[in-house]
Design a protein around this nucleic acid. Structure first.
Lengths: 380, 380
DNA sequence: GTGAAAGCGCTAACAA
DNA sequence: TTGTTAGCGCTTTCAC
């Protein structure tokens, strides 16, 4: 085989031997320079770099991976949606990965995909990755028992407990129950007797987690736990749920598991003649970019996507690079609540015995948005 | 070097020779089977597959890439945002790539990133990819002249003309001007004398394209072209623009370059006492999932993200696999408009001389959303 | 139809 | 501080 030419018929890509020859050193030395190894004199390093520059040398990663046994890439499994949460998480992961010099390989699982997460992980393993991030796994259709995924690289699961078996499994961003508690307590503190919940699809761990946080909070306060309504994260499903809830005069407060559903819900309530927040208070979840600008501006719980992906990745890379060391500890993400105007005390009710004032837990100002001069958004 | 063991201390991963030995064939034959080459008897194929199965054989991609000179992966450069457009496009690209058996490598360019697109493309080239997709490039800070990127693999640029030089450059999804025309004409047809425009950041080609479509439409109809207001895609910037526009009594119709800005704009108008659509009509762009559920439901132009990414990828892969063939032709994406209730005829004005009825160009029903039973959204 | 031999471009181990 | 020698696990070429 003659050395393959580029597709343009131009000369082939230079290899490290070519650089070595030009710099008057051995090929191994070129390798040393490009790997930032020690024991290379400044002069040699400079000559090598110069030679590489003039030749337009670019290290061949396939050869590197083959020789070293490491691909220096990490794979991420995401749902194939542009939903705010998953999409934001993915961007956070990319940023965190890029900072470390690793490459990112992405595979989606579509809902309804027969292969599901297992298939996605498998294709990542086929491609060759040093670690895997699974973002927001949802329960798979497991007719006969649990799907146990066996993987031989470290795995980081974001937003859920682990569905895999691997030499090292890390979890991050699974503290949504605490955030749900904050939302629910905000509503109770305003004087509502109880809080209804519009859940996400319960196949999602994220949905179940928020539901649990809500339920436990009500129970802890000795309140009724109303029937849960299940949506699918979409505004359309929130709208459908809203039509049902509007018919029930007892409903004065609703905690929706995401902002899109909250927006649909509010629309249905409004169309049915129930004013928000005068008749019904609504709290969302996520703090999507438009949350401050819909009518009424939405009280919601922002999710710390960046913090979660950054910390998670740091721990994953530590596990990859120090296979025998203790895993780095996880920290609890901050719990936040942005109070806007979709929540208020109930209208014609007496406040409960120990009614507290609505304590804002926000670190970002309570209801100062939309800003007078509405500058550019800082988060998108 | 002894054969490296897995990190668990368990036995090493099986190689194709191991499979060959077990199946009683040569290693080359194993390779033939896994590459679906012809000239392998059914019996041998079966034996090889069985042996591979029992051994848990998985082909080593680094070795494959090294030996063949092809990585079978394509790289995508995206902005590091969860904005609806870019995020949806990325998901579309993933889906299209996955169907073809190629792997996807993702790199972001953050706005303000000094290396920018060039850096992102470079890191992709370092990693080794057979083709590159650049999604929605924005103009780079080019103090001294144009940055011309030289790349030696085929490139597909989504949503803009090409900023690169490569053996093959394809473009897809750059027809936003036609969509902007549809939005503008809808407003003129309703009887508005002219239409204001809230543009996206003009460093984005997507923003300039929509602006041009709007401007040309007004000019073609002999209307005034009002001063453009520039936003940054965020609802916050739409809100800021809305405060300014609300003060101008002449404004009766605004075309916003995306839905988020339209939502912020509507909020500002409403707060200023200008009703939508009675006093001011607003059209958005994108058709984000909540667009049908905000108040008022937003008239907007849906973007054909899936069609664009699928067709674009098909053409890119054709170029990769047939380097010397003619590129596949591009087709124009469909132009659509979803009419909801944020637009109406102007209040106290006479319609222009040739005032036409507002012709709905929608293929999805005009204003039937939110649906009575608001089922699950079909697009997220 | 199948196999043997020769690399692909790099890193790892050891020697100098 | 630098060089030499072997592979990494596959595809390619060519022989049978």
């Amino acid at each position: 085989m003659t050395r393959g030419t580029g597709r343009g018929g131009s000369s082939a890509a230079p290899r490290s031997v070519d650089v070595a020859r030009l710099a008057g050193v051995s090929q191994k030395t070129v390798s040393r320079v490009f790997n930032d190894e020690q024991y290379v004199s400044a002069d040699v390093r400079r000559r090598v770099l110069e030679a590489a520059e003039t030749l337009g040398y670019r290290r061949n990663n396939a050869a590197r991976a083959l020789a070293s046994g490491r691909t220096r890439s990490i794979g991420v499994v995401t749902l194939g949606t542009a939903l705010y949460g998953p999409a934001t998480l993915l961007m956070g992961v990319e940023r965190a990965v890029r900072d470390t010099g690793y490459a990112l390989r992405v595979v989606n699982t579509m809902e309804g995909d027969p292969a599901g997460i297992a298939g996605a992980v498998d294709s990542l393993l086929d491609q060759g990755v040093d670690g895997i991030v699974i973002s927001e796994p949802i329960d798979e259709q497991t007719d006969d028992g649990e799907v146990v995924l066996r993987v031989d690289v470290p795995v980081l699961v974001l937003g859920a407990p682990s569905p895999v078996e691997a030499p090292m499994v890390l979890t991050a961003g699974d503290g949504a129950d605490q955030m749900a508690r904050a939302a629910t307590e905000h509503l109770l503190a305003l004087g509502h007797m109880t809080v209804h919940h519009l859940a996400g699809p319960l196949r999602w761990y994220a949905a179940r987690d928020r539901l649990e946080g809500w339920r436990r909070t009500l129970t802890a306060h000795g309140r009724d736990v109303p029937q849960v309504v299940e949506g699918d994260w979409s505004a359309a499903s929130g709208y459908a749920a809203g039509r049902a809830l509007a018919a029930d005069g007892d409903v004065t407060a609703v905690f929706a598991a995401n902002d899109d559903m909250a927006i649909g819900l509010i629309r249905a309530l409004t169309e049915a003649g129930r004013r928000v927040p005068e008749d019904v208070s609504v709290v969302g979840f996520d703090d999507i970019p438009v949350a401050a600008y819909v009518s009424p501006p939405l009280t919601t719980v922002p999710q710390p996507f960046d913090a979660v992906s950054q910390e998670g990745l740091k721990r994953l890379l530590h596990a990859i690079e120090n296979p025998d060391a203790e895993p780095l500890p996880a920290s609890d993400p901050p719990v936040d609540l942005v109070v806007r105007t979709s929540t208020a005390p109930p209208a014609h009710r007496t406040t409960p015995a120990r009614g507290r004032r609505p304590a804002s837990r926000s670190r970002r100002g309570t209801s100062s948005e939309p800003l007078p001069n509405g500058g550019p958004s800082t988060r998108h």
